[in-house]
């Protein structure tokens, strides 16, 4: 057990737990941020994607220790301070992307990071940034269209 301090969605946070615990389970079970999903546990599906100091990481395979002193952003933290939807979230609704919706928190976190680093991504850029996120409902075409639409917004 150890006290680990970090920021989650802008808020100072302290947890006292085994530092080898994957960040995913700390977010879900201790901080009750359930928008980040468990999919595979081995960084193969992307459902658990969050930002660690702005970089998308797979929280199922990121030890809590790695979050020490870091800024973590989850799906609950991507909307604007006024609660306004992020342009990626708005594009997701415009294109009616989600079906079952389970993978979409991770998809959106990957897309938000992509557009922040690359405001006008090509198809190849989208492939590279999004191929770590599996969608079993097969919404890939709509995800691509929504990313392009958010890039224009």
């Amino acid at each position: 057990m150890a006290e680990i301090r970090f920021k989650v969605n802008g808020e100072d946070t302290v947890v006292d737990t085994d530092p080898s615990t994957p960040l995913l389970w700390v977010l879900r079970e201790q901080l009750k941020l359930n928008g980040t999903k468990f999919g595979c546990g081995i960084a193969q599906c992307g459902a658990c994607t969050v930002h660690l100091n702005g970089t998308p990481v797979r929280s199922c395979s990121t030890a809590l220790a790695a979050a020490e002193g870091a800024e973590i952003t989850t799906i609950e933290g991507v909307a604007g301070a006024d609660g306004a939807r992020h342009k990626v979230q708005a594009a997701w609704i415009e294109h009616q992307v989600p079906q079952c919706g389970y993978c979409q928190s991770g998809q959106i976190m990957s897309a938000v990071a992509l557009l922040r680093d690359n405001p006008d991504p090509s198809d190849e850029d989208i492939d590279a940034a999004m191929r770590g996120n599996i969608c079993r409902c097969g919404a890939y075409g709509r995800i691509r269209a929504a990313i392009k639409s958010a890039a224009r917004a």
Partner: peptide, 8 residues
Amino acid sequence: DIPSKTDG
């Protein structure tokens, strides 16, 4: 159901 599936 879609808006709730974009914000967690």
